[in-house]
Amino acid sequence: MTAFPLLFILVQTNLPDEAVKKRAKAVFANGSIILAALSALLVSYHLTCHGLPCLFRALTGYLCPGCGMTRAAVAILGEDFAKAWQYTPLSLTLLPVFAFYLLYIYKTGRYIRKGEEDFKLGESVFLLLIAICFAIARNL
């Protein structure tokens, strides 16, 4: 979840009570940390042409579902979808699934305004299953 779409939600929310302010600050802080980490990773890759080493691959010798994902993300941002597919097909396969995460932005806004936690474990498990199946097929 990123911080920038949440700014729009926060601007539209009058933040009437302390509970809402507390939830908004927590969500913004967590989103900012995630956004900063992703930005640092992409900047580091752009400057050094080296992503983070994969501990799974170092320990097992097999490719994990995320191997090549940093290079693929940079290729997608540069609109080179063929190169992204070469790095890892999962990068383009998951693009439609990322639209699913837009739902999380809506749910986060509801959580901030009303305190309703409507996040379901099954939604995250679905993505995890896709990644596991991809990792198995990739290493066969």
Rank of each mutant, 00 (worst) to 15 (best):
A19S: 14
A36V: 09
L10Q: 01
G66V: 08
A24V: 04
F119T: 00
L7D: 00
P5Q: 05
C67W: 06
H46G: 10
A36Q: 09
H50W: 13
L10D: 06
S44M: 14
F98H: 10
V27F: 11
L7M: 13
I9H: 07
K114T: 11
L94Q: 02
A82T: 07
G51A: 12
C54M: 03
G78H: 13
Q86S: 15
L92Q: 10
V43D: 10
L94Y: 06
V74G: 01
I34E: 15
I34H: 14
N14P: 05
Y106M: 08
V97K: 03
L55P: 09
I33R: 08
G68I: 02
I34T: 13
R71T: 02
T13W: 00
E18D: 12
E123I: 02
K22S: 15
P65H: 12
L63Y: 15
L140G: 13
Y62A: 08
K83G: 06
A29C: 04
R71E: 14
P65N: 05
T48P: 06
L47S: 12
F8V: 13
S91W: 06
D17I: 04
V11W: 11
Y104R: 12
S124E: 13
E116L: 09
K22I: 10
L128K: 10
A99P: 00
N139P: 11
A37R: 11
T93S: 05
G66P: 02
L41M: 12
T60P: 06
L55A: 13
A72T: 03
F98A: 10
I112F: 07
R138A: 14
M69P: 05
K83M: 09
K22F: 11
V43A: 14
Y45E: 09
S91Y: 09
T108F: 07
P65T: 07
K107S: 05
A24K: 11
R110D: 14
I136H: 09
E123S: 08
E116F: 05
D17F: 05
L10C: 13
R71M: 08
Y62Q: 10
Y62N: 10
F28H: 06
I130T: 08
L35Q: 12
A58R: 15
A3G: 02
A137D: 08
A99V: 10
T88Q: 07
S91P: 03
T93D: 06
S44V: 08
I76A: 08
V125C: 00
R71D: 06
V97H: 00
G78M: 04
P53G: 11
A82V: 08
D80R: 12
A84W: 05
L7N: 04
I33C: 02
A73T: 14
A82C: 01
E123K: 02
L95G: 01
T13Y: 00
C54F: 07
K114P: 00
G66I: 04
G61Y: 14
K83D: 05
D118H: 07
K25N: 09
D118W: 06
A37C: 15
N14V: 07
G115K: 03
P16Q: 10
R113A: 11
P16C: 01
A72I: 01
